[in-house]
């Protein structure tokens, strides 16, 4: 073997060694690159404080009362829809039928959130589950309504809250009692139907706004510039003591957008139709016409807008 051969041989071995190391390093490196990181911001980065006045940080930032902010809406009938002779701002899609302007709808007892779901509450869900959210969803004050949530996002929160409230020892005894001991029924946390929403908003006396028949900018956040913390507007006259049923953020319901008369069985009709889901209540950006209790908007379930949020109910008793 000549010295040249020997040198060539040693550089070959060195080259092979480098090649092997290179491939091994690439393998190790790539094993750490398996998936792009989830775009979910950590909860600290959305500025959720350890304590939030009026909300329980040990109970997913739900309101601090014995039912964690759920308010009972007793069973019974209410008038749904709008009578244009009484409510001059009513839209055509609020009319019950050709024959009658409004319809009587009888609902069983249900519980509805006093406030819209807040940023802090949604952040608790995101933190607990790693749920992927849009970058703007968790922006805003922690006690403001969460917005930029799609319809499936809202349902995902409801499913999580349902399981959590039923399973966690943090759930107040009274709330857990009626969630679990339902005598053969299966009460669930979910989105309200539009009938549930409307009854909770206007009560049983057919009022146009949650507080009465006249618009009042001291009672709700509408025709304004942005979201406000939930419950910012005192409304002693409001039906059932609920806050922000008018304005602040539009609220998703679990009802498909169908012409009236309202039918609880409409869910499974028109599966071939374009998907639109009813949203209610108007937002901070709307005028007095769009924050009436009977207003019906149709929302594309995939959109996430800074003026669209939701609140939850417990129904199925």
């Amino acid at each position: 073997m000549t010295p040249n051969d020997s040198t060539r041989r040693s550089t070959s071995l060195a080259g092979l060694a480098v090649l092997t190391v290179l491939v091994l390093v690439v393998t190790v490196w790539m094993s750490f690159q398996s998936q792009p990181s989830r775009p979910t911001p950590p909860v600290d980065s959305v500025g959720v404080p350890s304590d939030l006045t009026g909300f329980r940080s040990d109970a997913w930032f739900l309101p601090d009362d014995e039912l964690l902010g759920f308010v009972k809406i007793p069973a019974g009938p209410f008038l749904m829809g709008s009578d244009a002779t009484v409510d001059r701002l009513a839209f055509e899609n609020e009319r019950w039928s050709d024959d009658q302007p409004q319809g009587l709808v009888d609902l069983p007892t249900f519980y509805i959130g006093r406030y819209e779901v807040t940023v802090a509450q949604f952040a608790a869900f995101v933190t607990a589950t790693g749920f992927r959210v849009d970058a703007q969803t968790l922006q805003g004050p922690p006690d403001g309504p969460v917005t930029a949530v799609s319809w499936p996002d809202a349902l995902a929160y409801c499913r999580w809250l349902d399981t959590t409230l039923k399973e966690s020892p943090q759930t107040p005894a009274r709330l857990r009692e009626f969630l679990l001991e339902a005598h053969g029924r299966n009460p669930r946390v979910g989105l309200p139907t539009e009938a549930e929403w409307e009854k909770a908003a206007r009560g049983t006396d057919g009022r146009i706004y949650p507080w009465g028949n006249d618009p009042n900018r001291n009672r709700a956040n509408y025709a304004g510039l942005g979201r406000t913390p939930v419950g910012s507007f005192d409304c002693p006259e409001c039906a059932f003591g609920l806050a922000d049923m008018s304005g602040n953020a539009w609220e998703w319901t679990r009802s498909p957008y169908q012409p009236y008369p309202y039918d609880t069985l409409d869910d499974r009709a028109h599966l071939d139709a374009d998907s639109l889901w009813v949203m209610r209540g108007g937002s901070y950006a709307d005028s007095e016409q769009n924050v009436r209790a009977a207003i019906r908007g149709g929302g594309d379930p995939g959109v996430r807008r800074p003026f669209m949020g939701f609140r939850v109910v417990i129904s199925g008793f």
């Binding site: 799609s150 319809w151 499936p152 349902l155 979910g190 498909p256 869910d267 071939d272 998907s275 995939g302």
Partner: peptide
């Protein structure tokens, strides 16, 4: 559902 396929939205309501 986010792609506006109505049947899927209905499926979300009733697991």
């Amino acid at each position: 559902c986010e792609l506006r396929f109505q049947a899927a939205c209905v499926n979300l309501l009733e697991p």
